[in-house]
């Protein structure tokens, strides 16, 4: 393949409650209409690996945006902001939905947008993908990568900022959902993945779950021991197939 020219940098958009949200945008330099993807980062925050994956999405032909979901915890270096977010228990669900909605609007208003917008999230961002896809009817394709806490129970409890388990919103899900999971993951466990799949099946939703042996939590993280190159390569293939189906003009 030829390498795409792209431009990338920090932008702002209006999120939940019209708050200003900073985000990293990577955009192929193509005038032909293309789809967009919103990347919801994991608990360590708006970090380098999230930004690199945003550029990867752009390299594969999507306008890709990664909002700083922790922006309400203060201004500063992403690791410092993430430390405060962590100490306060993370991002509230209503803010995640509102910020993602704002990011989707931003992507649709780009000059080369084809009007289609997908989302992808990792770990806590994977849970937010299921949540957002169950609240918004403006998302065309969703990808949950090992989202823990889709089902309440154990250490995942209902709280004031996260009042509903996403699995309980399955009836409201209006977005095709792709799930990527490692069979060695303690959260979500294979049993929890099965439970989620059964709920989707019972509700007649459009979904596809892919489970990988020899992989655990976070197996895309190329700078961590959890990285599993073969499984990651196969899973990225499924992701781009999914977006090819649902985000094409």
């Amino acid at each position: 393949m030829t390498y795409r020219s792209m431009k990338a940098g920090v932008v702002t958009f209006q999120g939940h409650n019209n708050d200003e949200v900073q985000a990293y945008l990577a955009q192929p330099e193509e005038s032909a209409p293309i789809g967009g993807v919103i990347l919801l980062h994991h608990m360590p925050g708006w970090d380098e690996s999230s930004i690199e994956m945003t550029r990867k999405l752009a390299h594969y032909g999507y306008n890709a945006i990664c909002p700083d979901l922790f922006h309400r915890f203060g201004e500063g270096e992403p690791d410092e902001v993430a430390a405060v977010a962590r100490s306060q228990g993370g991002k509230a669900d209503d803010e995640a939905v509102g910020d993602t909605d704002g990011a989707a609007t931003y992507l649709r208003e780009l000059a080369n947008s084809n009007g289609k917008v997908g989302i992808i999230g990792f770990c806590s961002g994977g849970r937010q993908v299921v949540l957002v896809a169950s609240h918004l009817d403006t998302i065309d394709a969703a990808v949950d990568c090992w989202g823990g806490g889709v089902i309440a129970g154990g250490k995942w409890t209902i709280s004031e900022s996260r009042p509903v388990a996403p699995i309980d919103l399955t009836d409201n899900l209006n977005t095709p959902l792709l799930g990527i999971f490692g069979n060695d993951d303690p959260s979500p466990t294979p049993e929890e993945v099965n439970q989620h799949e059964q709920a989707l099946k019972d509700a007649g939703k459009t979904y596809e779950f892919h489970r990988y042996d020899g992989a655990g939590h976070g197996f895309f993280d190329f700078d961590k021991p959890a990285y599993r190159p073969e499984q990651a390569q196969a899973a990225w293939g499924e992701i781009f197939k999914w977006y090819g189906t649902y985000l094409s003009s």
């Binding site: 608990m43 360590p44 970090d47 203060g74 500063g76 690791d79 430390a83 405060v84 100490s87």
Partner: peptide, 27 residues
């Protein structure tokens, strides 16, 4: 005990010593 930001590990024991809780950057 969770995902670290910098250490090349899947999980690590993280300690933040802070002066003012909920304030960015003083740790």
């Amino acid at each position: 005990f969770d995902h670290p930001y910098h250490a090349p590990m899947d999980h690590s024991l993280i300690i933040d010593f802070v002066e003012t809780p909920n304030q960015v950057g003083n740790r």
